[in-house]
Design a protein around this nucleic acid. Sequence first.
DNA 1: GCATATTGTACGTTAAAACGCACGGAAGGT
DNA 2: ACCTTCCGTGCGTTTTAACGTACAATATGC
Lengths: 178, 178
Amino acid sequence: MSDFINETVATQLKKNRTGKGWSLDVASQHCGVSKAMLGQIERGESSPTIAKLWKIATGFNLPLSAFLGVNNEQTSHIQGLLADKKVSINTLFEFDKHTGIEMFELCFAIGHEQYSEAHQTGVLEHIVVTCGEMEYFCGDQWHRLNTGESAKFNADQAHGYRNVGNDLLRFFNIIHYP
Amino acid sequence: MSDFINETVATQLKKNRTGKGWSLDVASQHCGVSKAMLGQIERGESSPTIAKLWKIATGFNLPLSAFLGVNNEQTSHIQGLLADKKVSINTLFEFDKHTGIEMFELCFAIGHEQYSEAHQTGVLEHIVVTCGEMEYFCGDQWHRLNTGESAKFNADQAHGYRNVGNDLLRFFNIIHYP
DNA sequence: GCATATTGTACGTTAAAACGCACGGAAGGT
DNA sequence: ACCTTCCGTGCGTTTTAACGTACAATATGC
């Protein structure tokens, strides 16, 4: 349930305390919290209030987050190489219902082109070209993008991309769903 | 004294709750915490335990740090932006109120590092490294990213970036505001 | 006008955080 | 052996977080 947060606080507190070479007694003096309480927290027997945890954090000269194990979902992807395929699509960020964002990196071989059906209304695509030259189709015509250029367009219509340079094309695609 | 932490939790809770258009009752159902308690916390009349605050945070689909207003006293010297040529920031997409997205490309000289203050709650940053090796600071530690890797983290806390490689660092930063 | 939800607050009780003190164990000194 | 000192834990009490319910507000409907 929510016991894991107590566990992380327990381990972090003990690690920080012993790391400074403090006994429960001296830690108590620094923090203004009884050593009995500190012991109970370290054993996971009690869940401190944030007021007390703040006193502990300031006593340790550390930010509050040092005791919370910081749940900031970081995900890391290694870039998938395109062997001898014509195209590779690498998902950098899966669709997130909170932000409405998903992000891909695409690699196109020379001359390759690809089309996509219309998405639902309000969907926006963001293109950033990191390598090569491309054109993207939107509305009723093609638009050119060189390396380092970027564009934003409505994707609630048929659209497409193609490599028009003499090298590998790499570009990012950030899609936002309303 | 240590009352200020209760104040920040109080204001953050009320802001997040009303921001979602939730009453104390529905917030209680989402979090599994009595609405009487939520009311007392919002009025600063009681200091929740971290276990309860964690239940609240998960009920709101927010990180714990969203309620703690982290961080004070963290050495954050804001570097002169484009004055010296140690860093360049290129705006690819201006902030769009419809998508809540803005996007930058950043270039750091060798060894350069830069910090940013906490953004408003719920702000998410997406990092994609296109060249070089970097580390980003988030929560209470640095996280490494090599070329081609990416990461997503909550930016409603003090955070930073630094070039830890032997070459120019290039990375994209997509910031999403809720 | 009178009902009927819906909101946030106040009250009384229960569970638990937090305190102070005392206890057993381990390390060091004489 | 001994005494001393420091460590962490257990116990009893006080404080308070947390709960459930009832209450006074403010709207919406008939």
